[in-house]
Amino acid sequence: MNLTLHVWRQKSRDTNGSFATYQASGISPDASFLEMLDVVNEELIAKGEEPIHFEHDCREGICGSCGMMINGTAHGPMGGTATCQLHMRHFNDGDEVWVEPWRARAFPVIKDLIVDRSPLDKIIQAGGFISVNTGSAVEANTLPIPKPVQERAMDAAECIQCGACVAQCPNGAAQLFTAAKISHLGLLPQGQPERYERVLKMVEVMEEHFGSCTLFRECEAVCPKEISTEFITRMNKDYLTAQVKR
């Protein structure tokens, strides 16, 4: 396949970026989007040009580092996939593809398609953990947890912190991320002691960096793990309960 790419190039945080156009030729339909960029980069390197910088690690949809905006949609047109799992067969020969970094005030561009997603870590640091004494792991079966609860907690825990929810949201809101993190702990017995304190702290840090939810549900549509906005409702409930309790 042959494609025309328009890729955002930006030298550093403090410089202005712009789109550059590249031809991606002889791409296998079985290549992933990142592999297609690898091919383009090989050519750039051979010509002595600076390759396109993008973040990647696992290339199997579990580390969350590979996010980019493809034709105006986070992680591209497929839904339920990270960019590394998006295959070129979902594009047509001759397509024009626009590739941009995540855009949000909280996510400044570091270089080309790489952004600084550390504000998400700050939300986790505010309360996305369970305080327990360390030691050998507790025997799993000593804490009975009903199957539906386990599964719901797992649905939330699938979040890979890629930031697509923020990138897609016209408000730059991190509600889906924060709600998923709050819920996977708050649904389980281990998360109960700090449940309400956690939601207050995490929401406070979230609001320092990100926008506010208008229920567009754009985040849910692009989330590579298809995390439901119902967790946002659940977060709101815990937040309101926590406010009433305090």
Partner: peptide, 19 residues
Amino acid sequence: IMNREARPVGYRDRDYPSA
């Protein structure tokens, strides 16, 4: 105002798959 500030730069071309 908070939301405008949280997303000062938009995309060249954007889709609304859900809104």
